[in-house]
Design a protein around this nucleic acid. Sequence first.
DNA 1: GAAGATTGAGAACTCAATCTTC
DNA 2: GAAGATTGAGTTCTCAATCTTC
Lengths: 144, 144
Amino acid sequence: MTHLSNLTQSSWIKLTRTHHHLLNAVEEALKSEDLPPLGWYDVLLELSRAGNNGLRPFELEQKLLLPQYGISRLVDKIEKSGYLQRQRCPDDKRGLRLFITEQGSKVQQKMWPIYATTLNTNIEQKLDRSEQDILVTILSKLLR
Amino acid sequence: MTHLSNLTQSSWIKLTRTHHHLLNAVEEALKSEDLPPLGWYDVLLELSRAGNNGLRPFELEQKLLLPQYGISRLVDKIEKSGYLQRQRCPDDKRGLRLFITEQGSKVQQKMWPIYATTLNTNIEQKLDRSEQDILVTILSKLLR
DNA sequence: GAAGATTGAGAACTCAATCTTC
DNA sequence: GAAGATTGAGTTCTCAATCTTC
């Protein structure tokens, strides 16, 4: 197999460029406001959703599609900044439970409007609803 | 601005996941054949297209959307593997000209079928032409 | 032995500073 | 002073090895 249609190559290239472009926009927006990178937001969001039960690192791993060591090191840094807490897990002594802190909640709430504004500018204002619907449908097929 | 439609959030999340999924597939396929990572292929492809004139690093920078220091270090490693050559530029003594080597050509030609097969499996077999057309059109709007 | 989590060592990335030539 | 390219120092990422508990 050495042949690939030009159309498929275009699909891949456009997908790569678009992702790169949007991710850059988000990261730069956060940086310009002296806020943590997007990866931290993802963690804080999941922890805030998890509520009083907190989350196990391996659950975070699945939700965020990060490797195990990635979680360990990311959680480490976020904890050192005071935005989350690690607690030993009573029912499974191998494990931990992670909780968002007050401070973490505040940062998360500061990050959201920046994040949202960027996506609004770069996606919502450029595609109407029906185009977004189609985009989601097509991308979903690629994930199957 | 703190509101963002669920649809737009879905668009962004799907885009991220799809990109992640496809990129992983390509990188793993290359790794499993003991071939260099995708970034090397991009460089080698551009150099092979450039032909006898070679390419200036800053041109590569623009084509690949990499920062200047990224190019320097990437080119460094590829040169050490013997897949490209740096030459001082006669007409602009600040600059260089990069050329692909014989060996580089061979590796590039080994990489292509792996790369192509992965994209074929993960894109071409999952979307028909009209869907790909629409995908490209919509993504193009996001890049404007 | 497998699952949850961490860690050491090496590779890659990032930022700002640097050097040379324009 | 700006453009082309590189580099030092610090940070982050990756792989495999490790430790503890299941």
